[in-house]
Nucleic acid binder design. Structure first.
Lengths: 110, 110
DNA sequence: CTCTTACGTAAGTGATTACTTACACGATAC
DNA sequence: GTATCGTGTAAGTAATCACTTACGTAAGAG
């Protein structure tokens, strides 16, 4: 899986309220699949499938302990997303900077 | 469209290489649909549809001038995404902080 | 006026998505 | 051993997605 594909799978994983909510919930610490599923109106397999999506996107890790699966945030999970966003936003701001610079120049040209 | 839906549509829009590339390309300034489409191996209608997705996600604006459509980045487009990410990452870091704090405490308890 | 250009959109298709129920497996309880 | 719990996965389905080609329209060129 190349960079583009990893970014795409991460963004795709984040494009779902339930999955974002799972990530939000896991910020307090690891939970098992059933503990997570208890908070949602959908079936437990559906939650397990959402977790698979998050796992493939590198955002969550599952560790089997006896018959329980402990789900936890992957610490470096959002780094790629964050850095793509940072680049795009820097450029965005650069455009403002250039615009401001342009206006400054016009002003001083008067 | 509520907050969750807006976030979902933004993330979904970003979950595609072509669309991310369009955003990347628009950082240099506005372009028409055909100017954009020239860089991709897919049809012009396909690009137009990608632009519709980006537009609905609030990331891009199209302005019709005569028969040309000028496509430009929406300045505040990525704010929602960035702030969601910031929150989730803050929490992520807080976990590290708490962990570090815990280790510090254990250390001083010895 | 006719011809072309730049565009949006409708209709169709094959692939993917988000669910469901049913099932299989390993670990604990008895 | 059998029964049960927690889990992952297979199979099926309705909806959505990323494209394609075909068409309709508005503006400029001759």
């Amino acid at each position: 899986m190349n960079d583009d594909e990893r970014l795409s799978s991460a963004f795709a994983a984040l494009a779902d309220v339930t999955r974002r909510n799972i990530l939000h919930r896991l910020r307090a610490g690891p939970l098992t699949v059933s503990e997570l599923a208890a908070h949602y109106p959908i079936s437990r397999p559906a939650i397990s499938q959402h977790l698979s999506v998050l796992e493939r996107a590198g955002l969550v890790q599952r560790n089997r302990r006896a018959q329980w699966s402990e789900c936890a945030l992957t610490p470096e999970g959002l780094l790629d997303v964050a850095s793509w966003l940072a680049v795009q936003q820097t450029v965005w701001n650069e455009r403002f900077d250039r615009l401001e610079g342009h206006l400054e120049k016009e002003k001083s040209d008067e």
